[in-house]
Design a protein around this nucleic acid. Sequence first.
DNA 1: GTGAAAGCGCTAACAA
DNA 2: TTGTTAGCGCTTTCAC
Lengths: 335, 335
Amino acid sequence: MVKITDVAAHAGVSPSTVSYALSGKRPISQETRLRIERSIRELGYRPHAGARSLASSRARVLALVLPLRRGMHVPVVMQFATSVVTAARDHDHDVLLLTGSEGEEGLIRVSHSAMADTFVIMDVEVDDRRLPLLRTLDQPSVLIGYPADPTGLTCVDLDFRQAAQACVDHLAALGHRRVALVGSHPEVYVRGTGFARRVAAGFTAAADRHGLASSVHPCADTPVAARALAERLVREQPGLTAVVVHNEPIVQPLVEALTALGLRVPQDVSVAAICPDEIAEPAATPITSVSLPTALVGARAVELLMSKLQGAAVPETTMLPVHLTVRATTAPPPA
Amino acid sequence: MVKITDVAAHAGVSPSTVSYALSGKRPISQETRLRIERSIRELGYRPHAGARSLASSRARVLALVLPLRRGMHVPVVMQFATSVVTAARDHDHDVLLLTGSEGEEGLIRVSHSAMADTFVIMDVEVDDRRLPLLRTLDQPSVLIGYPADPTGLTCVDLDFRQAAQACVDHLAALGHRRVALVGSHPEVYVRGTGFARRVAAGFTAAADRHGLASSVHPCADTPVAARALAERLVREQPGLTAVVVHNEPIVQPLVEALTALGLRVPQDVSVAAICPDEIAEPAATPITSVSLPTALVGARAVELLMSKLQGAAVPETTMLPVHLTVRATTAPPPA
DNA sequence: GTGAAAGCGCTAACAA
DNA sequence: TTGTTAGCGCTTTCAC
């Protein structure tokens, strides 16, 4: 193994000079710097992470806590994780992967053992049990999602409220008078994940503002459940001409269920979705949707964390804007 | 921060005794052990990971390299990752998350800096560029998938060949005479990912053995592509009565496309899939499928790694068996 | 602009 | 069965 003393000897300088050349924490003459860089390259030197963390109390590691439960759309989680890893690497950090199931114990373990010096927590619930702990940890953290009380925390999320509003605004402008929201898995509401509630709130508020009749329907994320709900909607709400879906796995099944019931999309019923473009775009009938720039959330979370590491003050909440793309599944209601 | 000397003082023993009590590397009297455990609990002591890694050359970290590319079914990747994290925790290890896009450089960085002491590489290609490097690394690794030459490596994968065979055997037994395989995204074949080729090979071999006419069709993972392929199959192969699908995202779309073309499943055409139960089971017509116990792969990979860490010899290749479940999409061909 | 040297907290000989 | 102590490789005062 190549160590810093090897590099120092090879470059004809002291170990501390190599260290400073690496960290940039004190000025080095152009000449020595080049000599050191050359030695590092020739010897293939990489600082020992443990030694570095021990001496500097900085592990250069970000701990990422991912949820792995019902009602989470996996591709979205994955995309988010990828963006965190990429952003972390841009700041010369690595990523430690934790599962939400480890709970508070996992956070304490990683924090106290100094394995990581920052935390990103995904899928935070409204009254998350981990919040008090996060407020006391030595390491800064960023939450994805909004808890009831963000005081003393840093939270990032997409503007789901605006997402729902954008859908309703669009449908109202087309002339629809009665709209329904097909929402997340019932469990998601029960456990109080913020985004599901914010979608529902934004949906209802916008409908009220436009004077539309509206209803909200949690739905399991299986084709069978989508079909059942579609039947119920058609049966119970004859005047219904537009549906907003916020449940990735059943966007397509729902459209198909409506079609199977004899309703043409968009001639008889309009469908707008809140989902990634990867779902909306390749559909047989491309779906009008509010796309979720998930990758931006991860990148922003890492940025905020790096600012906090440097002692900068950051906002307690950050809302990332979303954008509606009109495609082929929305049209004026039938005359 | 609580350190080992604090625990030692609190328990009235030397630091080394605490260390040995923790590692179990030398016998400790029942009494001192209990006293130490009590002190650790009361003080909330957690060993400093960096210090530990520096002193022992063991980071207790497993680096997991995940692919994030076209043609990978994300839920499967995620499920696999989860099983690796869980298994690693069972062995008191944490998991460092790397993306395949970091390539060899990422492996070198993590290896040389001693951040991790084992590697799990997912989605290995037949002629993977990382193989020579992996053979020379100080840390043991396990590959998910099979390269052309596994010499000096440790590889784990599901028995995809057997999976395809099981489907063909089942269809042949039902009396089908002409079968088609709808395979992975064309890119997957181009880049030479082993499992796609093994499925194709197993499929063709089994069909030949049974004297069936057979054909193989790579397919993009979108509903549109599934529909197009279904039309082509119906048009070009009038005698076709059975299809095997190995492409998770389009299992359902393909069934629907066939139905839309006027073919009843399973009366007119049988469909068998190679996919997770989570896809096959909840379908409107539950799909006959070979299920892929992805979670077992991760657990086995970690087990092999831990054995290697202890210097044990492990097989170069491990094939995990799969199992066919007959559901509602397969039946004898029409008379 | 550079060097010398004292730790960071832990493990693992070596000693008893 | 337990204690003493010399590092592990790096960062960072302190000194020049």
